[in-house]
Simulated scan of single mutants.
Amino acid sequence: MNAHHGPDTAPLIRSDAQGVATLTLNRPQTRNPLSEATLMALSEHFSAIAEDRTVKAVVLAAEGPVFCAGHDLKEMTAHRGDEDRGRAYFEAILGLCSAVMQQIPALPQPVIAAVEGTATAAGCQLVASCDLAVAGEKAQFCTPGVHIGLFCSTPMVALSRNLSAKHAMEMLLLGEMVPAAEAARMGLVNRVVPADGALAEAQRLAAVIASKAPATVKVGKRAFYEQREMGLKSAYDHASAVMVENMLAREAEEGIGAFIQKRAPVWEG
């Protein structure tokens, strides 16, 4: 956390424990929008975590009754008075947001969203961009752009890579609130827990991941996203090549050796 920000002013707070970094959106009074300041903070924290060998998993949470309301429309609308009617600013803020969303799958460590309240528009995109997601039973998800003449085209990228085509189109075309249980059925979240229990469950999952060999998790996460963009044969060729390298790595030698010898593996660093 930047030292010059107090806990009341920082748009994002980081706390670390047992190899898990928890990032908490901290603008509850404005519904935790993905403002320029928040996006910059997310980007900086993700860049730092990517280089931090002590962090094995990341939890993304939020203060207050709304997880994330998406783009700061007031901030964006303020630039309509610019000479270009805001074009340059809109391009910059959407470029920044898209870059942050891509940092999540690119991060070596798995990222788990802990969602209470509503996650709408780019806030829903943020949840879809995470590797795993846990929702409190009162959480709701929505891509409501269609109601205000601004179709959720960038959230669509993450949504369409998580949900079946029909489910993604249903959310995008109707713009209706999807309750937590339905979001789990659609595949937007992994599991639903009692209200106010999402953070604890996300941190529990993060602790399980943190107990695994970190280099193995890093290799696997990267290969997952790489192969998903490929055709079937290319995906198998790539995954096989990754697995050969993995088989020759010290962690696999130790893990497989421990399995055969019926003992617990000892992971390095």
Score class of each variant (00 low, 15 high):
187 G>H: 03
117 G>N: 06
255 G>W: 03
241 A>C: 00
231 G>K: 12
144 P>E: 13
152 C>I: 01
159 L>V: 06
66 V>Q: 03
15 S>C: 12
234 S>V: 10
81 G>N: 15
28 P>L: 04
195 A>F: 08
51 E>V: 01
246 N>S: 09
71 H>Q: 12
130 C>E: 07
24 T>P: 06
25 L>V: 01
21 A>K: 00
248 L>I: 12
207 A>D: 04
214 P>F: 04
265 P>G: 04
226 E>C: 01
96 L>G: 00
97 C>M: 13
160 S>E: 12
174 L>Y: 05
23 L>H: 08
167 H>W: 11
267 W>P: 01
131 D>Y: 11
53 R>F: 01
118 T>V: 00
147 H>V: 02
34 L>C: 10
43 S>N: 12
124 C>S: 10
257 G>W: 08
261 Q>F: 02
94 L>F: 14
135 A>P: 03
68 C>N: 13
172 L>K: 00
142 C>R: 07
113 A>K: 09
16 D>G: 10
130 C>F: 02
77 T>C: 09
104 I>E: 05
212 K>M: 15
218 K>R: 14
198 A>H: 07
37 A>D: 00
156 M>Y: 01
104 I>S: 02
42 L>I: 11
160 S>R: 05
5 H>N: 09
178 V>W: 00
264 A>C: 14
132 L>N: 07
231 G>S: 15
160 S>L: 04
134 V>S: 05
19 G>T: 07
128 A>F: 03
185 R>G: 15
140 Q>H: 09
103 Q>V: 09
171 M>R: 00
7 P>D: 08
212 K>N: 08
228 R>T: 12
211 S>R: 12
235 A>I: 08
234 S>Y: 07
120 T>F: 08
186 M>I: 03
254 E>A: 11
160 S>C: 04
87 R>F: 11
60 L>N: 05
204 R>H: 11
196 D>R: 14
234 S>E: 15
21 A>L: 13
125 Q>A: 15
265 P>I: 09
195 A>I: 13
87 R>G: 08
62 A>V: 04
175 G>I: 09
154 T>W: 05
